[in-house]
């Protein structure tokens, strides 16, 4: 029984800015279905007394001291920029302000 529809994959692809062909949408819907089913099995095992995990290591409170470090030189920072102007990254026109 398929739980992930092609439409859902298309919407997700849109949100993630990934351009998928029709055949890719169909294939991924099937593959994601398998993954979702597998995760669902985990949910069956996980009960209320099992804490949710977001990290493989059992660590908490790993903090850095608030001490400045050497920044990247501007030239290095901009080295990968397709375009720059006055020390800033130049990007295509932004259509909508958040």
């Amino acid at each position: 029984m398929s739980t992930i529809s092609r439409e859902e994959v298309a919407r997700l692809a849109g949100l993630a800015r990934i351009d998928l062909t029709e055949s890719e949408l169909t294939r991924l819907a099937g593959e994601l279905d398998v993954i979702v089913d597998s995760v669902a099995k985990v949910s069956e095992i996980a009960t209320d007394d099992v804490a949710a995990t977001s990290h493989p290591l059992p660590l908490t409170n790993v903090f850095r001291a608030d001490v400045p470090e050497e920044p990247l030189p501007v030239a290095d920072a901009l080295a990968g920029a397709p375009s720059a102007e006055g020390g800033r990254f130049a990007v295509p026109q932004i259509l909508e302000e958040d």
Partner: peptide, 12 residues
């Protein structure tokens, strides 16, 4: 502002 802008510059 955004209206009429041709491109944008970003400072991080």
């Amino acid at each position: 502002r955004i209206h009429g802008a041709e491109y944008s510059l970003v400072d991080y």
